[in-house]
Nucleic acid binder design. Structure first.
Lengths: 166, 166
DNA sequence: TATCAACAATTGAACCCTCAACTGAGTCGC
DNA sequence: GCGACTCAGTTGAGGGTTCAATTGTTGATA
């Protein structure tokens, strides 16, 4: 917004270094997420967000999780997750089950087939993350990235946000 | 993919520190982009990506740019940009014009109305970026973020990618 | 136990993006 | 100047996400 900057009063605009950092982060992330999504779509026929769902399920005892908890962990809205589980269920990679302790609840369960698909997808996904992120950064930069990410998360945790969204 | 990791051979998995950095970056970015998109949608009725289009146009002499150049600068596919300009044109914020030097080409031109909308949208957007990113980081971290971003971009520049995509 | 607010999850419409196919214009070789 | 190839941009279908509304359940209170 350089050209508009001087024309609006009362706003603390970004300094040059801040602007450069923001744009570098923004563009890097757009390119990267695009590349990850495309690769996942081509290799496994699902978007990257769905892969993350399968990952989270695979990391639990029993390969299942409450919908709402899964939504939190994948940083997804309830609605989005519900639609996503629909698709994954159609493919037979995930199943729904009633929650034994709360009749409002549903469990998402990763099937054998889903686990197989995940195991199939993981190596090239990790390779991609390595190639485009991890292996391009020094160990120091990797620590910096973790710190920066955690700082940003701390200011945006769902508990800080306003209302329910979906 | 911790649980699957040991079961698949030949893949160099992420170390703990690498995994943490990657997840922190991923989650921070999901939360942040979500928040930015939501704010822009509520305040100005457009997604963040459309705002970036207006910003790029506002930064040029004459407030216009070739579609293909605009696509490169906004890290967008030609198709995506074309659809986006459709929407912005419907709202009267952007106009299309024939390119004088190449009859295949089109210019996207930011209208007065579009510029006004942008000027309206910019302050709270910048405030958001400040609040959730810039002001949470030290000057040193801001330099680190720029370096990290640029390293990632260097490995993903369109020239490195394979074919045309839209 | 009746009532009412909060919660868990789903639904459908509207919107955005991707992909592949297409139109029309420039370019190169002959 | 003709054909084949490339380039700029658009189009429409299909799929993902968001938002607001809805269903059914739980918990608190009187």
């Amino acid at each position: 917004m350089t050209t508009v900057a001087p024309s609006v009063a009362g706003t603390r605009w970004l300094e040059n270094e801040e602007q450069e950092a923001w744009r570098a982060y923004l563009e890097a992330t757009l390119l990267l997420f695009d590349a990850l999504d495309r690769q996942m779509q081509q290799d496994s026929g699902m978007p990257h967000a769905y892969y993350e769902i399968l990952v989270r399920l695979s990391e639990t005892e029993g390969h299942n999780m409450r919908m709402s908890e899964l939504a939190v962990q994948t940083r997804s809205s309830r609605s989005r997750l519900s639609h996503a589980i629909d698709r994954l269920q159609e493919r037979g990679w995930v199943e729904r089950a009633d929650c034994p302790t709360d009749r409002r609840g549903q469990l998402a369960h990763l099937t054998e087939k889903g686990f197989a698909v995940l195991s199939e997808a993981a190596p090239s996904h990790v390779a991609m993350v390595r190639k485009h992120v991890i292996d391009r950064l020094s160990p120091e930069q990797i620590r910096h990235l973790a710190d920066i990410g955690n700082s940003i998360i701390a200011g945006l945790e769902p508990t800080c946000a306003s209302a329910d969204r979906g």
